[in-house]
Simulated scan of single mutants.
Amino acid sequence: MSTDTDTETQPHVGCVIGDDGRITFDLPPGSPEGQQLLLRLRPKKGQPEKTVHVLDFEPAGERHCAVLNARPVLTEGRWDVYLLQEPGSQRQRPRAGLRDLRALVDGHRRPRPSPLAVRIPYVTKDGHLAVRAWLRDAHAEAEGIDVSARSMTVRARLHGASLQEGSVVSLRLRGAGATAVTVEPRAGDDGRSLSFTVDYAELAAGAPPGGGVWDVFVRPAAQAPSMRVGRLLDDLADRKKIVVYPAADIGGTGLRPYYTVDNDLSVEVTGKP
């Protein structure tokens, strides 16, 4: 079991992220020279480790910094941060220092190149530094959700795609194959912004006994692949327990929009008679 003393003596690594996704990691003043930073793509349960990046710390005034450039992009997933006291030495998990994420706060307002590459440094449950990464050919960013007693209205913006003839919003019942509810999006003048309203009664009627989950997708054109609607372009690595929307009651059935563990938008149906 760790103690407060253990926490205080563990090394700390801070970071600053730039508008282009570049992350500069820094060690406190007086840290030993010759250290390296290792980023490891967290493997799925039971799978071996496959991908790592090793960065050198270089002197920068009184501190030492290691820079993860915007390219190459990171594979989508969670990246754990480690320190190496010297090349090839045993890994050590650092505590999270100061994280400057101001460049990410209004990230949903800026145009993004394709493929969309997102990085958000965050603190793990046990206080260590990690990086959340997304990598998608195209993405529909949820910019606002208005909920009422009968429906929800979503405002979104496309990155890496534009609305064309045949565009459609679909809510797919998770685990139910082709079961879906479709809604026609309202397109903005720029061809990238859109909004749509979902009637809760239709979702409640289509859910199985006991409830279910509807995942939200946008297909920007008739022959284009569908993309998930989500919120990736700000400073929150995990939205599910932070951004909580109120539930509505439709004849004893509860409906609530929420963000999944991947920050994608879904609607939960519970308590269906």
Rank of each mutant, 00 (worst) to 15 (best):
A156D: 01
R95W: 02
D234N: 12
T179R: 12
T5D: 14
N263C: 06
R78G: 07
Y82V: 05
P43V: 03
G14S: 15
D234I: 04
S148I: 05
V216G: 01
M227W: 05
P121G: 04
L265W: 08
S226C: 11
M1Q: 15
V168R: 12
D4F: 09
E165V: 13
L236K: 06
L83S: 08
L173K: 00
A103N: 02
G191T: 07
R231D: 09
T253S: 11
P28I: 07
E49G: 06
A117Q: 09
G160F: 14
V229G: 00
L83C: 12
S2K: 10
A66E: 05
V169L: 10
A237N: 03
G107I: 02
P28R: 03
R132D: 07
E58V: 15
T260N: 06
R228D: 03
G191C: 04
D199N: 09
R256S: 12
T253Y: 04
L233F: 13
V13F: 04
Y258W: 11
H12N: 02
V267M: 04
A70D: 12
A149N: 10
K241A: 11
A142V: 15
F217A: 02
L173F: 07
F57W: 05
K44I: 01
R42Y: 09
K272G: 05
S226H: 09
L236Q: 15
P87W: 06
Y200F: 15
G188F: 07
T7G: 07
R174S: 11
D26H: 11
D100F: 06
R174I: 07
G206D: 06
V183W: 02
V73P: 09
G166C: 07
D262P: 01
A207V: 06
E86D: 14
P257Y: 08
A187Y: 06
D137E: 12
G14Q: 00
A142T: 13
A70P: 00
Y122P: 00
A222E: 10
Q85D: 11
T24K: 10
Q90E: 15
A176E: 10
R109K: 15
D146M: 03
D26K: 02
P113A: 13
N263K: 03
L39F: 11
W79D: 04
S148E: 08
V267R: 00
T179D: 11
I17R: 00
Q164F: 05
F217Y: 13
L74A: 01
L38F: 09
A142F: 01
N263G: 04
V73C: 05
L173M: 05
E49V: 14
Q35Y: 01
R132Y: 15
A156N: 04
